[in-house]
Every structure is written in structure tokens, then in C-alpha cells.
Design a protein around this nucleic acid. Structure first.
Lengths: 256, 256
DNA sequence: AAGCCTTTGTGAATACATGCACAAAGTCGC
DNA sequence: GCGACTTTGTGCATGTATTCACAAAGGCTT
């Protein structure tokens, strides 16, 4: 559900696999939670359970960062927190701007997870004059006309796009032109960006559709519903056979 | 960024690869957009560009559903929309309940993508008496005490958890006990569920951390910042050497 | 009706990810 | 100070996903 355009690996393959990178934040969260409970040391097995993965995978993931465990004992929580944070780039602050202050933008602005570790929201922007000037979570909403200035002056390096679908690509082009190379997109569109820019996508309706697929499968697969015509609670009208296609093709499609 | 517990494949391997399932909604959206523009037929190359993937992948993905294209021509948009919708289970309505009506829950309740195709929000629940009774997007917020009744009476099959982290597992246990087998989790915790229940996770701070990793990498990797001590704008204080570890280990970690 | 041109669908090659299972490395008790 | 016990780190086998490249299949033109 997430797309990114990967460039060729720079540097002398410190290359951490993408799948591992995606799990490091989960481990980090589990570690913070252990830390809060005063736990000083943790085994790969315990941490794996807390993170919801299996322990071999966890160990292999961590081995990409270096050899930070102690055999017979486990991992020292504080030290591992630091190493993962460092690897993820959380030992420095990242400046974030949120563009689009609708329901979702507001929710994001108020989200504690931002401020907590390494991320600082430095701007809320919107095109609607009704909203501009409003104060949300300690920030005043600014007009999107000032986008380029704000990005430049405040050193924004991550843009969060929470605009309507129609506006997203335009906003994206502008933030990229202003030098931003990391974009988190909540709008339901595929953004196109030049090489070297990372886009990650969060898309509610895609997640729901994936769940629907599995839910349907648990209930016996799609065929059963469509075979008998009124079975589904409120079935969408199946379109007729494909207008342009040959009959043969349609028969195959239905029977296969 | 998304976890699910997969069961053994049922049925006579109609098994569509998970990676493909995750892309079908993207294709579907691109197709809808073509449909709105009145396009009747599309080639794999065109559709692939619109969906942000390469065309071979698109064709292989579609081939898992059946043989719905016409060689020399392409795919008929309307027909393909129907086939993908059917495969994803969108030809029937899915009843959704949103639990937790904070900023995020409100944003979700108001999100158009829900109603649009196949999903119907049939309940907004919260534990806070201040919020219960409030009307949001045409629905009245109900008390979470009625969770089990609501799920049963209204046939909820997908639960969206948008509660604070601390409440999420408890809520999850309750919805699962009430028979829900698909959960979309926005709370920053790893939910544990019995076999057969699908959980998908949407996690803002994880996405940001992944972006930060790549952003840092573009800037030259983690080492440069930590080598000279004041380089990072506001570097977190690096913890001393691992208290319990032997000196040898630390030296390795730093020098390797 | 024959041949050219386009585009699908898929075998085969490659790349990436997961999980098992165990040797190596360390701790701790005696 | 030694041996038993624990837990890491990783080689290897397996499984999944991506990409290439092309034969087969259809439409369209003449």
C-alpha cells in the first residue's frame, strides 16, 4: 500500500533491506514501551513477541545494523533504542509541514506521535480563507500561497499532503520544486515525482478493500455470491457481457 | 507497514498473491478515473502508468483474476472495473463501525471514500460521555458499552479502531469476541488476535520514520552526523557506552 | 483472405524475504 | 576457573515477488 521510487543504492552497501527498514519503527516502539516499564535487557524472543514478528526475523533485521546483542543475555534496551534511532535518523529533528487542514489535517496536527520523537510540525497550510488564521494545536494556519517561503525559511524537509485528491499533484509539484524530497501522501491519488523523491502513501480505502477481499474469501470466495443472483445483501448490478469482447471470452471469464 | 496473520489457503488455489491484492485497489481507482473521463478501453501500458507500476507487473496481476484483456487492443474499462470489484468483494456492502471518535475518528467518519464504494459506516462509538450523543456526518455517537449489541444487530463485519493506544487491545478483544474478523487499526500498538482474524495497521509515525531513514540516507548516512558531535541541529544526547556490555563490544559497534 | 501490427499472457531468470536450525560466543553457578 | 546453559548471529533452504522477453492471439488494412 505504499509506493516509493527507489534510487540506486549510494555508499558502500550499508544497504538495509526495505522490509527491515519498515519494521525498525515497530521494534523501536516496543523498546520504548519496555523502557517505560523499566526493563533494561530483552531477548530477541521477548522483543519479537512484543513487536509481533518471529524471533529469527528480528535477529536478522538487527544484524543489519551491527552486532548489538550479547549472546546468552540479549539486547540492552537503552543501547538498542539509541542504535535504531540513529539508523532511522531520529537523532536529529525533522521539520514537517502539513498541507490541507480539513478533518484529516486537523487530526494529524493534533497527533502526539509527531512531536514525541524527532518530528516537528512547523507549518499548517490551506487554500481556504475561512480556515487560514485559525489556530490548531498551537499553530496558526497559513495560506498556501506562502508555501515556497515557508518551506525555505523553516527548513521543511518532509511534506504531509492531506488535501483533496484534485489538489494533491499540484501541491506535490510545488513542494518538490521547493526542495522537499520526502512526501507523505494521504490523498487518494498516485503522485508522480522526479527521481530521488520518496513518496509514501497512506490510503484508508485501499486498506478497507484489502480487508474486504479477505473477508469475502473467508465467507467462501466471490463466486458463491454472484452465482445466485440475489444472494448479496445489496449487490451492485453486474454489467452485461463486455460490449466489445467476443462471446467466447465472456464465457471463459464466467466459467473459469 | 501492515501486518496480517495469514491462514492456510482455503479453496482450490484461486490464491491471488498478497502483493497483487494490495495493488488491485490502486488499479481500480485508476480505472474509475478513466471511466469518469469517458475512456472505454485501456492498454496495460497506459493503465500501468496511471497506477504507478510497470506494465508487466500489471499484466501478471490481472492474469491472476482471469484472462480479461484482448490482444492487440487492451482491456475494456467497464468490464475490468467489474471484475476487480467482484474479486475484491465490493459487489456487496460491508458494514463498518468506527470505535474512538477523537480527531482521527471524526476525520474517518467524514471521509467520502467510505460510502463511495461498498462500505457503509453503521456506528460511531466512544467511551467519553461528553462525545456520546454528538452527531457527526449524519450519525449519532453511541456509547461503547453497546459495542456488542451494535455489532450483532447491524451486522458489522469490519471494525475500525481509532482509540488511544491504551484502549486498543481491549476494544479489539471485544470486537473479535463479537464475531468481527477484520480490523483496521489506527492505534500505535501491535494488536494480538486469534487465528483467522485479519488486522491491518495504519501508522502515521511509522511512515514518517521510514521517510526519515531515506531522507537521512540522501544526506549522507547516519555516521556523518554523529561523528562530529554538534553537527545535527538538535541532536539527542547519545547515551554512553552500553552499561552492561564489555568494552570490546562497544568498540566494535563504533568502529565497524 | 492474407499479412502486418499491436498488445496480451506467461515461461524462465533474477532478486528479495522468510524461517529453520545450529555453531559460536558469551554468562553464571559452583 | 571450568563446565553447563542461554541466546545471538548467520548459512542455507525455501518461498514469494519482480522483471524480461517473446510466442500466441486478436484486430485492421488493403
Amino acid at each position: 500500500m505504499t509506493s516509493r521510487q527507489t534510487r540506486t543504492r549510494d555508499r558502500s552497501d550499508r544497504g538495509i533491506p526495505e522490509a527491515t527498514v519498515a519494521r525498525l519503527p515497530v521494534y523501536l516502539r516496543a523498546l520504548h514501551s519496555l523502557q517505560d516499564r523499566g526493563v533494561a535487557t530483552v531477548s530477541s524472543e521477548e522483543l519479537a513477541v512484543a513487536a509481533g514478528v518471529n524471533s529469527a526475523k528480528l535477529r536478522k533485521d538487527l544484524s543489519h545494523l551491527g552486532s548489538y546483542g550479547t549472546r546468552g543475555v540479549g539486547y540492552e534496551v537503552e543501547y538498542l533504542v539509541y542504535q535504531i534511532s540513529r539508523e532511522l535518523g531520529l537523532t536529529q529533528d525533522w521539520v514537517v509541514a502539513i498541507i490541507g487542514v480539513g478533518n484529516l489535517g486537523r487530526a494529524l496536527a493534533g497527533y502526539g506521535g509527531f512531536a514525541s520523537r524527532g518530528f516537528r510540525v512547523a507549518g499548517l497550510l490551506d487554500a481556504d480563507d475561512e480556515i487560514v488564521g485559525e489556530e490548531i494545536s498551537g499553530l496558526t494556519v497559513e495560506h498556501i500561497d506562502r508555501l515556497e517561503d515557508i518551506i525555505g525559511e523553516r527548513g521543511v524537509s518532509i511534506a504531509v499532503i492531506a488535501t483533496p485528491a484534485g489538489a494533491a499533484q499540484g501541491v506535490c509539484d510545488r513542494v518538490v520544486a521547493s526542495g522537499v524530497t520526502s512526501v507523505l501522501n494521504f490523498a487518494p491519488v498516485v503522485l508522480s515525482v522526479p527521481e530521488g523523491v520518496d513518496v509514501r502513501k497512506v490510503d484508508l480505502s485501499i486498506e478497507l478493500q484489502i480487508l474486504a477481499f479477505h473477508e469475502q474469501r473467508k465467507a467462501g470466495g466471490p463466486d458463491e455470491f454472484d452465482a445466485l443472483d440475489g444472494a448479496a445483501p445489496k449487490a451492485a448490478a453486474p454489467p452485461g457481457p463486455p460490449p466489445g469482447a467476443t462471446p467466447t471470452q465472456y464465457v471463459e471469464a464466467v466459467e473459469a
